[in-house]
Simulated scan of single mutants.
Amino acid sequence: MRTWILTAAVALLASAASTTASTIAPPQELKCPVGGKSFEHSFYMSYSTWGQRPDGKPYGSGEFPVTPPICPDNGLIMYREFTKAEIKALEGLLASAEYQALRETDTPFFRVAWIEKALNPKSEKIVWYLLNASWEADDDAVLKMRYQRAFLNLAETLPAKPEDETWLAIRLRVMNAYRELGEFDKAQAVYDALNVEALSKGLPVTREEAFELRDEKKRNRWALVDYLKRLHVVLVRGDRRSEPLDMMRPWDAARICFYKRENPEALNAFDRAYCATPEIMQEIERGRDIWGVSKAERDAARAKLNGAA
Rank of each mutant, 00 (worst) to 15 (best):
I284Q: 09
A254Y: 05
Q52Y: 11
P33F: 06
A16P: 00
A113L: 11
R237S: 02
E86R: 09
V293C: 06
G36K: 01
E40K: 15
G292N: 02
T105D: 11
S123H: 02
A187Q: 03
R288H: 00
N153W: 08
K218Q: 10
A169H: 09
E197Y: 08
K218Y: 02
V190L: 09
N120Y: 02
L102C: 07
A177G: 03
R171E: 14
T166I: 13
D73E: 15
P65R: 04
A9R: 15
P65H: 03
I280A: 10
A193M: 13
K88L: 14
R240C: 03
K186C: 02
M175K: 12
L235V: 06
S134K: 08
K57D: 09
I115M: 00
M1W: 09
E81Y: 08
A160N: 12
A160H: 05
P65S: 08
L143E: 10
D139H: 12
P264E: 12
N176V: 08
K229P: 06
L172I: 13
L228Y: 06
L13A: 10
E297Q: 13
M247W: 06
V66C: 00
K37F: 04
L131I: 03
R53E: 12
P69C: 00
L203P: 00
P27H: 03
A193C: 07
K84Y: 08
S200G: 08
T206Q: 00
A141D: 13
L168D: 05
Y274S: 02
E98R: 01
G238C: 06
S48R: 01
I24N: 10
N220G: 04
Y44C: 07
V236C: 08
E81I: 01
R240N: 02
T7S: 12
F64E: 08
K88N: 14
S22G: 13
